[in-house]
């Protein structure tokens, strides 16, 4: 009987492995392993055997059943895999097409520059402050120690509104507004648009961007100012930057400086950009004039500070070698979308 069982298994295995169709496979399974199959027939005859034989044949039959089950499973998996492989072999895409392209956009290069600098400063403990574009004379001039007859107030520089307000001409206007809100010691940063009466051309814009910084504490010195400026510039340019401080006159600082950096185009050798001097004028800065501190309600006997301004447009133009400042406010995506 055991021989019969082995024969059945061999026959089944041969048939199953020769079959390539899943449905036909199920039929083979039913024929051999179903109620009417040969194995069942053998098991039905068990009762005629001795107990020893019964156990021997029974075990063999169970073993055979498991073996057939396994053969069956393997074959089924094999067929499914073959079907998938056949399908995959026919699947192909032209990866050079862009059927559903989803492009990312870009932040404006001035925003990018502004945020980069903000990040450097906030990591140094500065907070970002804001102020209005339409400003009172007080915040833009008077509080900044700019007397009424100072040239900066000339009609050709400042936009005046019919009601007497003005458009801020520098982000320094943010200084006193900030001092009204926060008390020293503080380190603040005021980025934003500023406005001057300028006819538009390749290098002149009536609306441009500045970034104002101010530090107020006890015992702030010129040496501190130089250190902070150097740190900042090295971060912006990602390398050590040579700077020099020249005396410069701005009514809201005393002493006041013009900070020059080593020309980044010619490395200080002299070129047309730096007018052969090897230096580029970059940042007006200085020690906050006591009158400005007083305008902001700060005790100028106790506190000192420094302030600086940075023109963002010029930095952006230098960084990307942008030839015409008019692109910045053009709204032209052929320009803006390049800064992804």
């Amino acid at each position: 009987m055991i021989e019969d069982i082995n024969k059945i298994v061999a026959e089944f295995t041969e048939k199953v492995n020769a079959e390539g169709d899943l449905q036909a496979l199920e039929q083979i399974k039913a024929a051999y392993m179903g109620k009417k199959g040969p194995l069942t027939g053998i098991l039905k005859n068990l009762r005629n055997l001795s107990p020893e034989e019964k156990s021997e044949v029974g075990q063999a039959a169970n073993k055979a059943k498991n073996a057939m089950q396994e053969v069956m499973e393997n074959r089924r998996e094999g067929i499914i895999r073959a079907q998938i492989d056949a399908k995959v072999a026919n699947e192909w895409l032209d990866f050079t097409l862009d059927e559903e392209s989803q492009e990312i956009g870009a932040l404006h290069p001035v925003s990018q520059m502004q945020y980069e600098i903000e990040d450097i400063f906030t990591s140094l403990g500065f907070t970002v402050q804001d102020g209005p574009h339409c400003e009172l004379d007080f915040y833009n001039f008077e509080a900044l120690n700019i007397p009424e007859d100072h040239p900066a107030r000339d009609m050709q520089d400042t936009f005046y509104f019919e009601n007497g307000a003005i458009l801020r001409t520098h982000t320094s206007a943010i200084q006193v507004r900030a001092m009204e809100r926060i008390k020293p010691p503080f380190k603040i940063l005021g980025p934003g648009k500023v406005f001057r009466v300028e006819r538009l051309d390749a290098s002149h814009e009536a609306a441009f961007h500045q970034l104002e910084g101010m530090v107020v504490d006890e015992d702030i010195s010129v040496a501190n100012l130089i250190h902070t400026m150097k740190t900042l510039l090295s971060e912006i340019f990602q390398k050590d930057i040579k700077v020099r401080l020249r005396p410069g006159f701005f009514p809201f600082v005393e002493p006041g400086f013009e900070l020059d950096i080593n020309c980044q185009i010619c490395n200080g050798k002299g070129c047309s950009v730096c007018k052969q001097t090897g230096w580029l004028e970059l940042m007006p800065c200085g020690m906050v004039h006591p009158n400005v501190l007083r305008s902001g309600g700060i005790d100028a006997e106790k506190y000192t500070g420094f302030a600086f301004g940075l023109g963002l447009d010029r930095l952006v133009m230098m960084r990307h070698k942008i030839e015409d400042i008019r692109h910045l406010h053009s709204g032209d995506l052929r320009f803006s979308s390049q800064f992804k």
Partner: peptide, 12 residues
Amino acid sequence: SNGYGYTEIMTH
């Protein structure tokens, strides 16, 4: 910009 693909412009 970086999620939905819009590009920032500036206007006067």
